[in-house]
Amino acid sequence: MAKPARAVRKMDAPPWLALRGSPLSDDEFHGKVSTTSWIPRLEYGWDAGIAISRFLEGLKAGKILGVRCRVCGRTVTPPRAFCELDFRPMDDWVELADTATINTYSICYVTWDLKPLRKPQIPAVVEIDGTTPRVGFLHLIGGVNGSSVEAIRKQLRVGMPVRAVWKKPHQRAGAITDILYFEPVKRHPER
């Protein structure tokens, strides 16, 4: 057992009593101090549910489906079986456009365990045209050039219109990834 570098720290501050704790270095953690490890293996078979199942079937057919609440009038996607505010069924199904507006985006350069990504991911909250304002959902932005913050920010801004880029019909699996990403809508100068 390694002897901790510093087991107590006294300071001219409350709680006046010495604070206890034994910080370990990386070196101590990975070897010198007894450590055991365990890699969990858990598998789940998730049901998509009533509303999302129908939404996924829509994606497979190249359509973005939403639902409207007959009480509060909100139109949302991804759909849900009931309105969480009114506690009524949300069963007025509508087919939405596959265009959207960027509510916010980020440029992510690391994986979840902080390994660097050479090509950044660009997650975004997008508001699908036809839904109630601020009813956004998570997806990815693509179709932009470069990988630096500066280069990407030149091509994207909050409020920008985007359009879904779909997988080819035979490749679609009825999954959120049937939409590959959303890309900026090209402006036509003649319009």
């Binding site: 549910g49 997650p123 909250v125 997806h139 959120i176 990834t177």
Partner: peptide, 20 residues
């Protein structure tokens, strides 16, 4: 079903919120 297949990590929601 609708988020994890996109490969999200926790930083996303903070960075998205900060940018908004």
């Amino acid at each position: 079903t609708i988020e994890r297949p996109l490969g999200p990590n926790l930083l996303w929601i903070f960075s998205l919120e900060q940018h908004r």
